[in-house]
Simulated assay, not measured.
Amino acid sequence: MNMQPKRPSLLERAAQIYDFNAALKARPAPAAADDLPPPSPAGFAAPAPAERHHARPGRTGTIDREELREAGYILPDAPVSALAEEFRIVKRQLLLAAMDGADPRSRRILVASAMPDEGKTFCAVNLALSMANERDIEVLLVDADVAKPSILSTLGLEAGPGIMDAVEDAAIDPESCVIRTDLANLSVLPAGRPSNEATELIAADRTRVVIEALGRVPNRITIFDSPPVLAASPASVLALHVGQTMMVVRADRTSEADLKDALRLLEGCDDIRLLLNAASAGLGRRRFGTYYGYGA
């Protein structure tokens, strides 16, 4: 029988294209997505609705689904598409690490890129939307790109206080800045007040206190949309507070030299995975979506 070889995942394809291992400390290779079993719900008891939204301070907001759909983002209630299936594979690896890790930082994921315009925020939002479709977790998407925040405008949410306000003022409860969206499992923490001392504020111990406080919510996965690593220094500081980093590399733009430099600056995080963005169809033969009756 003519057996087709297993096609690599987007994570593996990125590692193959960007051969950076010789310049970095050895890191465990990511498991093939197709080999991963579904995550066990052990340790993730589904929180009651009141606990998830109404028992904590904060405000509410409605996501502009139509704008997201027109911009090419995925939505939990949309038909299955190629993009939605790719992010299902990506999130499964991240969730497995989050559930299996004894370190609470494993439930904190930094989404980064070497330079601007490589698709970092697009991937962070899609990852959050995909994870929000899980039944036993809550997702908190943090706009940590404080110099050029874009999460609120992307989701159609109103501006308000955010992570920088909570870091700068110890009297502010970080949860009071969180926006509970009308997607039941998705909350958003804005960037908040801009500051010329963002790196120094993020490097202060108060940031650790804020991030740990946000992590006390049961079953919460926190995703940080980071500034570009080589364009803004806060990314390397944020890497110290997370257990996983998803590094977005754009197939037609990210250079190997830039990627190596960025990964060196993120060495505060021990688990870094590459996500290949804007890959041409020739790199793989997946046709996700067509199996379910939808054109991909």
Rank of each mutant, 00 (worst) to 15 (best):
I74G: 01
V139A: 11
S195C: 05
P28Y: 02
A147G: 13
L276Q: 07
H54A: 06
V217P: 01
G72I: 07
G192Y: 10
V125H: 06
L110F: 03
A124N: 05
N219I: 05
R7V: 13
R65K: 12
L24H: 11
D182L: 11
Y291G: 11
P37D: 09
Y291E: 15
E67R: 15
G295Q: 09
V167S: 01
A71F: 10
F288C: 01
E256I: 09
V146R: 03
P227C: 01
E138S: 08
V209Q: 06
G156W: 04
G119F: 00
G284E: 02
G284R: 07
R56W: 12
S106G: 03
D64R: 12
R13A: 06
G282P: 06
Q244Y: 01
R287P: 03
D165A: 09
N133Y: 07
E118Q: 04
A55V: 07
D261R: 14
E267M: 08
G162M: 14
M247W: 09
V178P: 03
G215C: 05
L24K: 11
I17V: 12
P39T: 11
D103Q: 07
N21Y: 11
P28L: 14
M3V: 13
V249P: 00
C123V: 15
R208A: 11
A239G: 06
S187M: 08
L230P: 00
A128P: 10
L75I: 11
A14G: 15
R135L: 12
M246P: 05
D182Y: 10
M164T: 13
P37R: 04
M131A: 05
P8R: 06
A128E: 08
S153W: 00
A128F: 12
H241Q: 15
T207C: 03
A296C: 07
D103Y: 02
A124C: 06
G295M: 13
I211E: 02
V188E: 03
L152K: 03
R208Y: 00
G243N: 00
Y291Q: 14
A191T: 12
A15K: 04
P234L: 00
I221A: 00
T290N: 10
E66T: 11
A14D: 04
F288G: 03
A213K: 14
L283T: 04
H54S: 04
L94M: 14
A98R: 08
P218G: 13
A166D: 02
L68R: 10
A22V: 05
F87M: 08
A29M: 14
A23H: 15
F288E: 03
A102C: 14
L75S: 12
D270R: 13
D169K: 08
A213E: 14
R180M: 09
T222I: 15
D261C: 00
R250G: 08
D136H: 08
P161N: 13
Y291R: 15
R193N: 06
E118T: 03
E86T: 07
